[in-house]
Design a protein around this nucleic acid. Structure first.
Length: 561
RNA sequence: UGAGCUAUGGUGUAACGGUAGCACUACAGUUUUUGGUACUGUCUGUCUAGGUUCGAAUCCUGGUAGCUCAACCA
């Protein structure tokens, strides 16, 4: 009997297609080995998260391995601090690397290979200045002309290169160049620089070296040494691929395949490392992990989970065309995750006092509240109730518009998990601000249901005034508010596009006593207000929360319509 | 006046010569102890002009638009 198999396979992205083809054809013995190769010159951001998920995800899917390799070939920019943060962020995202390696591990091997290329007449020492090299190289539309040092003898090249290594020459005096093609339409093939002299202390090799390999020379060889099969990088390296292949071929070593994909862009989000560094250095934000930053550590502190970031990476897909992902997708991903795991809790960010006149003074009772309506296994908790409560200031309106379902004079609403209450009176201060809302409650509605079956239109959250804890809540808006912060035309810099109200601190928030023992990075849904995450640092024992993301629809917006 | 890459709804991403689908967004509705969640529905799409073909988003040619490339950065 033949069974009809409904193969509901998810369609493959172009990377998976390439890899499956390679496996099918027995290339690399059917193995998949990838690498994530950051330069330790800054913190990782969400764009890197996409690359990490791609590299590790692909290897995982096809039973392969992934290395974490630090591309540390330029000591003037690199620091150990960055190495540590990168290691931590990749780990936090949920990935384990096969090996932790450094391009600097290969300096000696790279040097030997350079010697080999010199001996084969494929590389030469050039004494031209930086400006001269640039001039000799020509422009894309016109061929360059050969350096006068291009035809030095092997002996002279060897002598000079050895002396470069020994430190006999000052920075910039000479470089080692590959002898390729000055007429190539691809500028990267016009005798690219392989080594430059740089008397700088390297974060790992110290002062052992004063010549350092360039990216183009080091990267492919590093991939090759590690046995990488698929070297996945972003689109701007596409023009480097012929050079990548040239070195591999000239050296006749294992040939990884470089494949490029389009980097991630997100609306309203600055993704350039240079600009993020500027935001930090000029103190426009409070460090790399400021919750407004698109860095992985910033997102973590804001309350994003590894799962949500991995989901995002999956949802944005991968292709070779330029793209700008709407930030709404990122927000959907974290809501999707937090909705399942975050405990519901009642919290009042902008409190106004409610007094239940017919509730006995001094009486306290405990009511049952469910922790997560989506997940009964998360259980219930007790919420204390008393005569004086706080509710959200905007949950009361003296003169409500139509479709306002919450508290107003004469209307009855449900206090969630508690009682129906009806507003009878309002007390104001000299400026006309409401200071107390007086209500009566119906004792028969305990728990929030009415025996007579009458309905209330609204349900609002509350906390007991005498039991409530004080908390500080930080609300983060988008750092950039213009339609396209990357658009710096009309003389504007990206800093001009910054939203001055991107951080609001609410210091007078009241939260359920239940929240007393929260740990850093605990996630909660404050009913109707959004998702909040305990900040890593609490001040003076005071609870501090960061708002991760709001709920999908804002209440205010609905009222406006 | 060079080379390379890319073009599918508002945004992403599928369809690999044979019914243009999925997700996000937006809007509408059902359920609901918060207007959330869940579920249902609606709106929008193959850059353009030719060609090949019974049949083209897909193949070919021309155009147009966008991106990348002229660091001793990665």
């Amino acid at each position: 009997m033949i069974e009809k198999t409904q193969t509901e396979e998810k369609s493959l992205n172009f990377l998976e297609e390439i890899i499956e083809n390679d496996i099918k054809n027995g290339k690399n013995g059917g193995q998949v080995y990838t690498r994530f190769p950051p330069e330790p010159n800054g913190y990782l951001h969400i764009g890197h998260a996409k690359s990490i998920c791609l590299n590790f995800g692909l290897a995982q899917k096809y039973g392969g391995k992934t290395n974490l390799r630090f591309d540390d070939t330029n000591p003037s920019k690199e620091e150990t601090e960055y190495v540590d943060s990168i290691r931590e962020d990749v780990h936090w995202l949920g990935f384990q690397w096969e090996k932790e390696l450094y391009a600097s591990d290969y300096f000696e091997q790279l040097y030997q290979w350079a010697v080999q290329l010199i001996k084969e007449g494929k590389a030469y020492v050039c004494d031209l200045s930086q400006e001269e090299i640039s001039e000799y190289r020509g422009v894309p539309t016109k061929p360059g002309k050969p350096s006068p040092y291009r035809d030095r003898s092997v002996e002279e090249n060897m002598d000079l290169f050895e002396r470069m290594r020994k430190g006999e020459f000052p920075d910039g005096a000479r470089v080692l160049r590959a002898k390729i093609d000055l007429a190539s339409p691809n500028m990267h093939m016009r005798d690219p620089i392989m080594y430059r002299i740089m008397h700088a202390e390297h974060h790992r090799t110290g002062n052992k070296w004063c010549i350092y390999p360039m990216y183009d020379y080091a990267h492919g060889e590093s991939d090759s040494i590690e046995g990488i099969t698929h070297s996945i990088c972003t689109l701007e390296f596409e023009v480097h691929r012929p050079l990548y292949d040239w070195f591999i071929q000239a050296l006749n070593i294992h040939a990884p395949q470089q494949i490029e994909f389009a980097r991630l862009n997100i609306t309203y989000t600055v993704m350039s490392k240079r600009k993020l560094l500027q935001l930090v250095k000029e103190n426009h934000v409070n460090g790399w992990d400021d919750p407004r930053m698109p860095t992985i550590c910033g997102l973590r502190r804001r309350g994003y989970t590894p799962e949500s970031l991995r989901l995002f990476a999956e949802k944005v897909g991968v292709a070779r065309r330029e793209n700008v992902i709407e930030v709404e997708l990122l927000e959907w991903c974290i809501r999707e995750d937090l909705n399942k795991r975050a405990q519901r809790v009642m919290s009042v960010l902008d409190p106004v006092k409610v007094i239940i006149d017919n509730y006995p003074e001094g009486q306290t009772e405990e009511l049952d509240a469910v922790n997560n309506p989506e997940d009964a296994s998360m259980g219930t908790r007790k919420v204390p109730f008393s005569r004086e409560l706080y509710i959200e200031r905007d949950d009361f309106m003296e003169n409500p518009p139509k479709k306002y379902f919450r508290l107003s004079p004469g209307t009855e609403v449900r206090l969630r998990y508690a009682y129906y209450i009806t507003c009878t009176n309002v007390v104001k201060d000299a400026e006309g601000n409401i200071t107390e809302i007086h209500c009566t409650y119906d004792p028969a509605t305990r728990g929030g249901g009415s025996p007579d079956g009458r309905k209330v239109q609204g349900t609002i959250h509350w906390v007991s005034a005498q039991h409530a804890l004080d908390a500080e809540v930080r609300m983060f808006d988008r750092l950039f508010s213009s339609p396209e912060p990357e658009n710096t035309e009309e003389g504007k810099t990206f800093l001009d596009m910054m939203n001055p109200n991107s951080l609001t601190v609410l210091r007078n928030c009241k939260i359920e006593p239940f929240l007393k023992n929260t740990k850093a990075l605990d996630h909660f849904q404050f009913e109707r207000l959004g998702y909040f995450t305990t900040d890593a640092d609490t001040k003076d024992g005071k609870l501090v929360f960061n708002r991760t993301v709001g709920l999908k629809d804002s209440w205010a917006k609905t009222i406006k319509n």
